[in-house]
């Protein structure tokens, strides 16, 4: 039986834009085998924030309404995205439509530069972030580990940054741990979320051990053999990583060092004579 540790044991709560949330696992809602599996995954992992999107709707179609009713029934915060947008203008208009549809000023801002990598267009991202922040949005920008872009996003009004772990949907884990460590060290007071590219719970734990405030993922859970169990696995990995960060990891060293005391080792004097 593991002793229960309260939230205080893991440091200050994750509170994007001043809204404290319980879970540091943010979950996407796409690609699940069924709405029921999605709903069960969210419940099982006790997720506080889920990402959603918007798409063209045909007249008399009911898909959008049904999905929205299901999400609302879960009592979670929704973070709409601007997935698929390639220009600041598209992203801004999509954000405005999302604000009206979902009734939130939170927006996961994506401006995509490249179809193969889905790499953020950092120039367009900064431009759109400024426009949206001036319009009252609380922007969660999907960005890279680039410190210059990060500083410009903060200056544009972003209070949260979401660097990629690896390209969206690849499941490769943290492609550049060195850059992510640097970013964490450079912005000690800024809520940072590793977004995208994680394939296994160990990847999420690694990000949390580095001191990231939260992780955001979708495909690794949705495309797992059993998404509900995988959601639970990620939730535990995120908690374990955060707890480890709060506890303080030991420094790695090059030479072996015995963990069992040397003093009083039997036969020690005989070894010396040999």
């Amino acid at each position: 039986m593991i002793m229960d540790l309260d939230a205080a044991a893991t440091g200050s709560p994750f509170a994007p834009y001043g809204t404290p949330v319980r879970s540091r696992l943010l979950l996407g809602t796409a690609q699940y085998p069924s709405p029921q599996v999605l709903s069960d995954a969210i419940r099982t992992a006790d997720v506080s924030i889920v990402t959603v999107s918007l798409r063209r709707e045909a007249a008399r179609a009911k898909g959008g309404e049904r999905f929205w009713d299901m999400i609302r029934g879960l009592g979670v915060h929704v973070l709409p995205n601007t997935a698929g947008c390639r220009t600041p203008k598209e992203a801004v208009t999509t954000a405005q439509m999302a604000r009206e549809l979902f009734g939130t000023d939170w927006i996961k801002l994506e401006v995509i530069a490249n179809d193969d990598t889905l790499q953020p267009d950092l120039f367009g991202l900064v431009e759109a972030a400024g426009t949206l922040a001036r319009d009252g949005f609380k922007v969660f920008p999907y960005t890279t580990e680039d410190l210059g872009a990060a500083e410009r996003l903060l200056a544009a009004g972003c209070e949260v940054l979401m660097p990629w772990g690896a390209p969206i949907g690849t499941g490769r884990g943290l492609a550049n741990p060195y850059a992510l460590r640097t970013m964490r060290a450079y912005f000690p007071g800024v809520p940072l979320v590793v977004d995208a590219g994680m394939g296994a719970p160990s990847h999420a734990a690694q990000a949390m051990e580095m001191g990231y405030d939260a992780v955001l993922l979708n495909t690794a859970v949705a495309k797992a053999g059993d998404p509900i169990r995988m959601a639970a696995a990620f939730a535990r990995a995120v908690e374990a990583g955060r707890l480890a960060y709060a506890a303080g990891l030991m420094e790695a060293r090059d030479m072996a060092s015995p963990s069992t005391p040397v003093a009083g080792t039997p036969f020690f004097d005989l070894d010396l004579k040999a």
Binding site: S53, L54, E57, A61, E65, P80, E100
Partner: peptide, 29 residues
């Protein structure tokens, strides 16, 4: 390409060649 809020729809006149987008909530990552 410009957002039209719900309250502005009755007063928004259409013109030939307009591109209209109508969107709804959907799953997203």
């Amino acid at each position: 390409g410009d957002f039209v809020p719900e309250r502005a729809r009755p007063g928004t006149t259409l013109r030939t060649g307009d591109h209209v987008e109508v969107v709804a909530p959907r799953q997203g990552g």
